[in-house]
Design a protein around this nucleic acid. Structure first.
Lengths: 200, 200
DNA sequence: ACCTGAACACCGTTCAAGT
DNA sequence: ACCTGAACACCGTTCAAGT
């Protein structure tokens, strides 16, 4: 049986199926063997297109980070720039929460991250902050974005009232949190971001 | 050769060696086989004392979280309480940064976390915040603490000036960051926390 | 050029067997 | 009661071999 004239695999196809598996099964749910199977191929075949699993994850991560918008700093209003950049950053991460723990390791090494950081730092210095202050403010924004994207808060609560009632007097409605997790996460992030920027 | 009268393994010894391996080799550097070897035992022996690797990690995590201090809320000054609790939380995580990605998954399910959250929520409601606002403020504190503990910022920069000079005009001194990462991380967290609390 | 089969050195976990 | 040896079903990765 002749092979089809077009290759079965391409970097693009590998990346997109890998991301789909991560979104569906979690970061630990992605294995090279499972990825190969869903691509209709053997695991070894992947290594003709991808250097290592780690490099593949970095590619997937870069694709996600590429969508972040730093155009807000062009306005000259650094507060508005910070808020818009942070919001777009969090949205990009929130679309693929399972990959965030991987992203949290050394995003500073990625090209897109450095570009973004450079723009942010420049806007803050132009606004009169010292270089050190600009660095710390940028760090603070990252703390909020990654902390929020880890989704460690609203999700993770049990939906069973019995887990809270009686034992934790102030958490007697915590079982309702999973149902509103998404909007509560967004609102909590917006509140924290607004308070942070206002408090600077 | 007779076995010693005292068992080789105990939950305490397993936990402390496991944490030492995580601190030294990272979260992925901990395997049941390596842990067993450092305890002078075969991998299978661990399962007489520990249910699964996941349960072991949860035990290690709980031991770390147990050291967090929420006594600051007793003063009646909710701002001071928030700052002191967040500071002690971050310090606990910063002592063992490699386990933070694991901790970020569902800390809300852990007993110590719920207790802490209950205290924090109660203090905020007592201060006049609505229940929803109290929930969002607590979430904001968690965002800052976990974002900062992930250490995704200062570390992760290269120590080689050539990686930045020329290409990123505002980052021409980024190669100095690794040398001051620890204090810069602390200062950045303090700045962000102060701004957040002030802006509320 | 692109994919495969088999292999290597690992995993977490179980379980009958030893002392 | 506590530990072991061997096994099972997985990993990421390499490499000679096939087409």
């Amino acid at each position: 049986m002749p092979r089809p004239s077009t290759p079965l695999l391409s970097p693009d196809r590998i990346r997109s199926v890998a991301l789909a598996i991560i979104d569906r099964d979690g970061l630990d749910g992605l294995s090279m063997r499972k990825l190969a199977a869903e691509l209709g191929v053997q695991a070894a075949s992947l290594y003709g297109h991808v250097k290592t699993k780690d490099a593949l994850l970095n590619d997937v991560a870069s694709a996600i980070l590429a969508s972040i918008d730093v155009s807000g700093f062009a306005s000259g209003d650094w507060r508005a720039g910070l808020i818009q950049c942070a919001r777009s950053y969090r949205e990009a991460l929130a679309s693929h929460p399972n990959i965030v723990p991987f992203l949290a390791y050394g995003p500073a090494g990625r090209e897109e991250s450095l570009n973004r950081l450079d723009v942010m730092h420049g806007a803050l210095v132009d606004a009169g902050w010292s270089r050190r202050e600009a660095t710390m403010i940028a760090a603070g924004v990252m703390y909020l974005v990654f902390g929020a994207a880890l989704s460690s808060f609203s999700s993770g609560f049990s939906a069973d009232p019995a887990d809270y009632s009686g034992r934790y007097p102030h958490l007697d409605r915590a079982h309702l949190l999973p149902g509103v997790a998404r909007e509560l996460d967004r609102d909590s992030f917006e509140l924290a971001l607004a308070a942070f920027v206002r408090g600077l």
